[in-house]
Design a protein around this nucleic acid. Structure first.
Length: 565
RNA sequence: GCGCCCAUAGCUCAGCAGGAUAGAGCGUCGGAUUCCUAAUCCGAAGGCCACAGGUUCGAAUCCUGUUGGGCGCACCA
């Protein structure tokens, strides 16, 4: 299309300064209009000084001359519809076979490194279902970006410097005392009650004996914190591994602070008058009683669209979460061209300030997106499951994955766009019933795999497939399958991995439909025992569909099954 | 009070940077199993795309406002 427009500019039919971005070429919603449609005539009519229909005629004439194009028609206000030759589609089908697992991959993102930070759960306990969606979405997005040629860094930020890890250390100290025979009774309010700290306490007891019993906190806090965090991260890594998730980089907030990164960022910002000492206004709405005006170092996030300047240090001189996070993002931007954070929707309120900080520190150079993943409401027997980390009654990720399998969890989490809320009906997922769309897609793949086995059993000698024998229904399936690369490209562009799941659902539906034609009419089956030629063609098509299903599932981190029990 | 996200069939959701008659699954109703896996398929019913304006050849999609729901709102993490 680009070449065609070039030709028209060269011949003076179009002015040179046209806006090409508005020109689209895509399959029309209604297949009866043709294989491809373009709005070029309507978009370009004004600058060309022609009415859309007249321009459409000129473009259509040129399109018609192309070898791949079977026929062209003009419709409505100036749509140009094209039908491609069967040979063109057959060629696309062969391309799927030749490229195999690479079909759909591209290099459009080559040379651009993207850092995807996801999960980053606080190291204070095992992963629970609340973390699950962000983990899956982040991981699938990372894989998707790799598929279009980006270099991707998968990163996890360990929040090991705040008050919550001190609480963790105290909780571990209690378990340590318990391991040495002390009766600790009820876990006090404000400490983590989970059993997962018991082994941590035991290990510390074995190593240090009674040395820290009744000792002042200053003697053991750092040690216990370090050990407990390490143990929690170990646990989190193994939970993530159950989902097939592995990060390249684990960045520690404590190390970042030890390396004085926040100080460096502050100095730079002060030089540029983006940090100043000031007093925050009282919070809007109900003012807490203990609120007092205090002078703090503030970042001018209002300059970048935030509604309030944000403190980077607390009144006790330590860094706020934001202060450290700002430095952390600056660090990430050193080794990547683009940054993506996957956050839970409960952090939505802090998006603007961090975007402001990144814009300031990178002087607007780094593309930075925060993808908010909405809450997942867990249902059991139709009732919402209440979870609280404090109370220790959360549903762990590991439990769910062990029960229903990683593939079901991963696929299910990708069947909704990330910024829409989602109900996760626990009972249905545990049942692994037909309500899980993953089975629908898997079933299609299993059927395709069984075709290969059946053909082999029948002992048919299959000739090389003659693709000119593809029928109308088969060609329709080829056309749908051929959209796969476009879907991947668009999904990567929009950073929406769920589109893959929907496409696979469509593809599986078309395949099942095609398959079932054989139920009404034996001559329409894929394997026709007395016709090796038609069997060869249909089997070839089925296998390429299977290839695409495998490719799509691979991007989602889901294994394609060859058999269902 | 303020900010962010959302609003599409009875229910759960798609709708690909504005395109032609708005789609799917579930549910409801009616069909298809001596047959390559019926865990599937075919058909029917079901819509003021929350509401009101605007932008243009053209809006579910973009802009403004309203209503309704979710999340958040000190130096927490």
């Amino acid at each position: 299309m680009d070449a065609l427009l070039d030709g028209m500019i060269a011949s003076g039919e179009l002015p040179a300064d046209i806006n090409r971005k508005a020109v689209t070429v895509e399959p029309p919603r209604d297949a009866s209009h043709g294989d491809l449609a373009t709005n070029a005539a309507m978009v370009l009519a004004k600058p060309a000084g022609l009415n859309p229909r007249a321009l459409a005629e000129k473009i259509a004439a040129r399109l018609d001359a192309l070898e791949e194009v079977e026929s062209v028609s003009i419709a409505g206000p100036g749509f140009i519809n094209m039908t491609l030759t069967a040979a063109t589609w057959a060629g696309e089908l062969r391309a799927i076979e030749q490229m195999g697992a690479d079909y759909g991959r591209s290099s459009s993102g080559a040379g651009v490194t993207v850092n995807v930070e996801y999960v980053s759960a606080n190291p204070t306990g095992p992963m629970h279902m609340g973390h699950c969606r962000g983990a899956v979405v982040g991981d699938a997005l990372a894989t998707l970006l790799e598929a279009v040629g980006h270099k991707v860094i998968r990163e996890y930020y360990i929040n090991d410097a705040g008050g919550q890890v001190d609480v963790l250390a105290r909780s571990a100290h209690l378990r340590y005392a318990q391991a040495l025979g002390e009766d600790i009774g009820e876990i006090p309010e404000g400490l983590y009650p989970g059993d997962y700290l018991v082994p941590v306490g035991q290990a510390l007891a074995e190593e240090y004996g009674e040395r820290f019993v009744g000792a002042p906190e200053a003697d053991w806090l750092v040690l216990f914190r370090t050990r407990a965090v390490a143990a929690m991260m170990e646990m989190i890594r193994s939970d993530l591994a159950l989902l097939g998730i592995h990060h390249d980089v684990f960045a520690s907030e404590a190390e970042l602070q030890a390396a004085k990164k926040p100080e460096a960022a502050e100095a730079w910002l002060r030089d540029h008058d983006l940090v100043y000492d000031g007093v925050l206004e009282a919070p809007k709405g109900e003012t807490p009683e203990d609120w007092e005006p205090v002078e703090l170092p503030l970042f001018r996030s209002t300059k970048f669209g935030d509604d309030q300047d944000r403190p980077i240090k607390k009144s006790n001189g330590s860094w706020t979460y934001f202060g450290a996070d700002m430095a952390y993002h600056f660090q990430k931007a050193q080794s990547a061209d683009q940054l993506i954070d996957i956050w839970g929707a409960d952090h939505a309120g802090t998006v603007k300030r961090i975007q402001a900080a990144v814009a300031a520190l990178t002087e607007g150079k780094a593309r930075f997106d925060v993808k908010l993943v909405q809450m997942v409401r867990l249902l059991r027997d139709g009732e919402p499951v209440k979870m609280s980390k404090r109370a220790g009654n959360f549903v762990t990720l590991a439990d769910v994955v062990r029960e229903v399998g990683k593939d079901v969890v991963r696929f299910t989490m990708l069947t909704r766009k990330a910024d829409a809320q989602m109900d996760f009906d626990f009972a249905k997922v545990v049942e692994a019933s037909k309500d899980n769309p993953v089975f629908y897609v898997q079933y299609a793949h299993a059927r395709i795999a069984s075709l290969g086995r059946k053909a082999a059993e029948a002992g048919m000698a299959l000739p090389a497939p003659d693709l000119s024998r593809l029928g109308t229904e088969e060609l329709a399936l080829v056309k749908l399958a051929a959209q796969y690369p476009r879907i991947i490209e668009a999904a990567a562009q929009a950073r929406e991995p769920h589109r893959i799941a929907f496409f696979l659902g469509d593809l599986a539906a078309s395949f099942h439909s095609w398959w079932n034609m054989g139920n009404d009419d034996a001559a329409r089956r894929i394997i026709v025992v007395n016709d090796a030629h038609i069997t060869a063609v249909r089997l070839f098509l089925a296998q390429q569909i299977g290839q695409i299903v495998r490719n799509g599932l691979a991007l989602m981190g889901v294994e394609a099954l060859s058999e269902l029990q």
